[in-house]
Design a protein around this nucleic acid. Sequence first.
DNA 1: CCGATATGATTTGATATCGAACTATATAGT
DNA 2: ACTATATAGTTCGATATCAAATCATATCGG
Lengths: 150, 150
Amino acid sequence: MTDDPLAFQLFTEIGIIDQLGGAAFERALPAGLTRAQFGVLQHLSRRARPSQSPGTIAAAMQVSRATMTSTLGRLAKRGLVAIEDDPADGRGKQVRLTDAGETLRQACIAAVLPLLPLVGQALTAAEQDQMLGLLRKLREVLDTARDAAP
Amino acid sequence: MTDDPLAFQLFTEIGIIDQLGGAAFERALPAGLTRAQFGVLQHLSRRARPSQSPGTIAAAMQVSRATMTSTLGRLAKRGLVAIEDDPADGRGKQVRLTDAGETLRQACIAAVLPLLPLVGQALTAAEQDQMLGLLRKLREVLDTARDAAP
DNA sequence: CCGATATGATTTGATATCGAACTATATAGT
DNA sequence: ACTATATAGTTCGATATCAAATCATATCGG
């Protein structure tokens, strides 16, 4: 069970943590919001530009445009974002957070904050820092490899 | 963008790495096999017991029984595993790897090995070791929290 | 100016995943 | 023995995700 190559084990652990952490996260989120949906709200609220194209958001979230179409559709149906035609480009759309979206986003933050100490229970601040550095290095290489391969 | 709590950033990186790594992995896998399917083949081949119940496999893979029903169904349809009634328990099933499944599993390993050096490109062996230790600590806490919460 | 190519978004069809409801069998408790 | 409860597996309806195909509009080249 532990005779796999180190790299294999790394991805196994990462996959499990993503699953466990994501599940805990969504359990805490109000109103049946999903991680993907919260991610979009969070992304939109952090941007200086009040409105972005679906493609830009998809790239930032590292998902395909097809996925983003579907997620944005659900958010729009709940009135959390507004999607309008881009006046500057007939093909494009522009997405912005509505007031309801911003309100719910803040509620999500509040709902999720209590989970954070859990990480502190596992790792000291120094360890978290260290881990973040390692994860970033790994992510950058994977990112580069992806751009190169297809 | 980086003013999130550390723990937040950790999970963000982990999510992205899981996505990028998983995508690269599945691109390398032959015959449109998925990570989930490969995981089951791999799990079955590593066990001393030649046959396991769906529930046991689901627990080992950290997914719900419902998910495993669906994945096993697809594997069985391709003849990679055999599913039979458990003679000792009228409710249960027993799953085992077929010869075709074992053959394909080995092909998967061969197809995927070339990806591993990618990790070495990002992290030294010592760093990988360190990271694995940190990931395991985090996973264990999340695992315990999950068992406690529901 | 127009045909060729590129780009933005959507649709379609597949897989994974979950929780909840359901079926069938097993086990416990009295 | 019989009812109550627990467990194994499946089914259902959502969501996320992707690749490929499609549609509309932009842009480029000549």
